[in-house]
């Protein structure tokens, strides 16, 4: 076997049977902690779903006295996804922000450095174990999301795309956690930094963009011009695709009102039409790329220390 083939076999072996991942999963799933987190998470989601149901049935009763069940289903589904997004934004970076710094704090990093474990295997092992647990949380919530199917108004595509957006967000948040954990000597500072970045992408970015729009006082009517309108459409779309909640909301809106999850045409003020893309696609590409960059930087950081 050539050296390259042996290295490839070793690399794939480390990815599929990563000792760090196995160790982390064993530790994470042992005892009551994992199941407590899962129980609290599902309880919160369940309580929220009940509250949403009560609120929507009260408000969506039509003139005939019948509730709009499709509206109930959609709101219930959207509400559960929104809460999942919020919980994951806090949980995912918390799962990984102690990944490397925790090894330093427990004085085990030195032991790992003296072994044959490469830096990428350490980082990917930590990330994979955290991601698998996040995926468990997401999968565990599917029955709650599926309650919406009883009411109708929600398609399987919506469920699938919600899972994609949530999973990609989780991967990004986990990667941010791993990166700051590799940079920081203390888990506390890594947690704070990771949470700061997460909050910025979740809430800071929309606030910032909103403020800029308000301050600039953009108005399509006042400026005019189809080129400007197209630029504004693409610009707005791009900005919306940078924010997980906005992406989820807009994707659902497009599925419900335009029945599309891919390309769609939009008619401008002057009657021309332009082709736009559903935000979950650029969102996925952008966040996967960003997660890749954070992971690359984390591996490089750990590699420098390890070598």
């Amino acid at each position: 076997m050539t050296g390259r083939a042996a290295a490839w076999r070793r690399g794939t072996g480390l990815l599929l049977r990563n000792p760090v991942m196995v160790k982390e999963l064993r530790g994470r799933m042992r005892g009551a902690r994992a199941f407590s987190v899962l129980t609290i998470y599902l309880t919160l989601l369940g309580v929220f779903a009940v509250l949403v149901y009560i609120a929507v049935t009260e408000s969506s009763t039509s003139v005939s006295g019948q509730a709009d069940v499709g509206e109930i289903g959609r709101t219930l589904f959207g509400g559960v996804v929104a809460v999942e997004m919020l919980l994951i934004a806090f949980l995912a970076p918390a799962f990984t922000s102690g990944a490397i710094s925790g090894e330093r704090e427990h004085q085990t990093f030195e032991l790992l450095r003296a072994t044959l474990l490469p830096a990428y295997a350490l980082v990917l092992g930590k990330l994979t174990s955290a991601m698998l647990y996040v995926l468990l949380l997401l999968l565990a919530a599917i029955p709650l999301q599926s309650i919406a199917f009883f009411f109708g108004g929600v398609s399987e595509t919506e469920l699938l795309l919600a899972l994609v957006v949530l999973s990609v967000s989780a991967l990004f948040f986990c990667s941010v956690g791993v990166y700051f954990s590799a940079r920081s000597w203390r888990t506390l500072s890594a947690s704070l930094l990771a949470l700061g970045v997460t909050l910025f992408f979740m809430f800071g970015l929309p606030l910032l963009v909103g403020m800029i729009w308000l301050l600039a006082d953009f108005s399509l009517d006042s400026v005019g011009g189809s080129a400007f309108e197209v630029a504004m459409l693409y610009g707005t779309g791009a900005v919306l695709s940078l924010n997980p909640p906005a992406t989820a909301l807009l994707t659902q809106y497009l599925l419900v009102n335009r029945h599309t999850a891919g390309l769609f045409s939009y008619t401008l003020v002057n009657g021309d039409s332009v082709t736009l893309i559903a935000p979950w696609i650029p969102f996925t590409v952008f966040y996967l790329a960003l997660a890749g960059i954070f992971l690359f930087l984390a591996v490089r950081r750990v590699h420098v220390v390890m070598e």
């Binding site: 049977r17 000792p19 196995v22 064993r26 530790g27 427990h106 004085q107 990093f109 072994t115 044959l116």
Partner: peptide, 25 residues
């Protein structure tokens, strides 16, 4: 190599500790 401190993984069994490091090697 054995450093002058014992790096503790507090959530591992004895056999898992050895299994983990054997896998790392």
């Amino acid at each position: 190599y054995m450093p002058d401190f014992f790096g503790v993984y507090d959530d591992m069994k004895v056999w898992e500790y050895l299994d983990f490091f054997a896998a790392c090697y």
